[in-house]
C-alpha cells in the first residue's frame, strides 16, 4: 500500500493517520523491531500506527530534543549500523504498516543517495523524511527517490513563507510534515495554535496530506490535532513509554493514540 492509499483509507474511516517514530536500533536492533511491531499492533482492541517512522540514529541530531538525542545515542553506543536499517524496514513492512525513514542528510549522502533509495525501496520502505534537507538542496535526492519510487517527505514550519510552502509542497510527495511549533522534537504540554494555522496555509497550496509533529504527547493532543490534520506524528512520547513499560507499554500507548485520532475499536468492515 502506498502512503497515498494509507491516508485515503484513514480519511474514508474518518480517522487521521497515526504516525509513530522510534530510532532504529533503540535500545538494540532486535528490541527495536519488537517496539515497532508493538507500535503497529496496538492493544488488540484498537490498532496502532498506520505509518511507522524509522529514525536513523545520528551523531549530531540538531532538530531533536533531549529524549530523541538520548535514545539515538543509546542506539549508536549499542552498535547500530546503517546497513541494519533495511532489515528493520522489512520487518515493519511485514506488519502491514507503512514504513518510512526519518534521517538527517549526512548518512544518506555517505551511503550514496541512489544506493540508499534502491536498498530502502527493496526492503519495502515507502519514503524518507529529511529534517535537514530542504528541496532547494535536494536535486540528487529527488532524482534518486523518483527512480526508486520513494516518497519525498519534506517539512514546513510556522516560519515558512507562502512561497516556500508552495515550493516545498510542489517538491514533496506522500505527505507533508508540518512542524507544529518553532523548536526541536520533544513532548510538550500543549500543541501550539500555530499548528492549525500552518496546516491551513499548507492546504492552500497542495492536495497532499499534512501530518503534524513536534510535541504531541497524549491521546488528547492527538485528538485535537486530528481535527485539523491528516496525520498525527508522535515520537518522543513513544520513547518515554518504551523506557517505562517496554513493548507492552508501546502497544498500549499506540492504541490510546489510535482512539485519539479516531480509530474505531472494531476494525472497519
Amino acid at each position: 500500500m502506498s502512503l497515498h492509499e494509507v491516508f485515503r483509507d484513514c480519511a474514508t474511516r474518518r480517522s487521521a493517520a497515526l504516525i509513530g517514530y522510534l530510532p532504529a536500533g533503540f535500545p538494540t536492533v532486535p528490541d527495536s523491531v519488537e517496539l515497532f511491531r508493538a507500535m503497529v499492533r496496538g492493544d488488540g482492541d484498537t490498532p496502532g500506527c498506520d505509518v511507522v517512522e524509522i529514525g536513523i540514529p545520528y551523531s549530531d541530531p540538531v532538530m531533536d530534543g533531549p529524549t530523541i538525542q538520548a535514545a539515538s545515542g543509546e542506539a549508536l553506543r549499542n552498535g547500530f549500523r546503517v546497513r541494519q536499517l533495511f532489515d528493520i524496514v522489512s520487518a515493519v513492512a511485514e506488519t502491514g504498516a507503512a514504513p518510512v525513514v526519518m534521517t538527517y542528510w549526512n548518512p544518506v549522502h555517505r551511503y550514496g543517495p541512489d544506493a540508499f533509495a534502491r536498498d530502502l525501496a527493496a526492503a519495502g520502505g515507502l519514503g524518507v523524511i529529511t529534517p535537514d534537507l530542504v528541496p532547494d538542496e535536494a536535486d540528487e535526492w529527488l532524482a534518486a527517490a523518483r527512480q526508486h519510487r520513494l516518497d519525498r517527505i519534506f517539512l514546513v514550519a510556522p516560519s515558512s513563507t507562502e512561497r516556500r510552502v508552495a515550493m516545498t509542497a510542489g517538491a514533496g510527495s506522500g505527505f507533508l510534515y508540518a512542524a507544529s511549533v518553532m523548536g526541536v522534537t520533544g513532548a510538550r504540554d500543549s500543541v501550539s495554535g500555530s499548528a492549525r494555522e500552518l496546516v491551513r496555509r499548507t492546504r492552500a497550496h497542495t492536495e497532499l496530506p499534512v501530518g503534524v509533529g513536534l510535541g504531541v504527547r497524549t491521546a488528547g493532543h492527538a485528538a485535537e490535532v486530528a481535527e485539523f490534520a491528516d496525520g498525527v506524528i508522535v515520537g518522543s512520547a513513544f520513547i518515554d513509554r518504551a523506557g517505562q513499560d517496554g513493548a507492552a507499554g508501546v502497544a498500549e500507548f499506540a492504541a490510546e493514540l489510535g482512539r485519539g485520532v479516531g480509530k474505531s475499536s472494531t476494525p472497519a468492515p
Partner: peptide
C-alpha cells in the same frame, strides 16, 4: 545565490531556519 562554492556550501538546514 544558494551559497555554493562549486559543489560545497549551500543550506543543509531545517526549514524552520531558512527564513532567518
Amino acid at each position: 545565490p544558494g551559497g555554493h562554492f562549486g559543489s560545497y556550501g549551500g543550506r543543509f538546514m531545517p526549514e524552520a531556519l531558512i527564513a532567518a
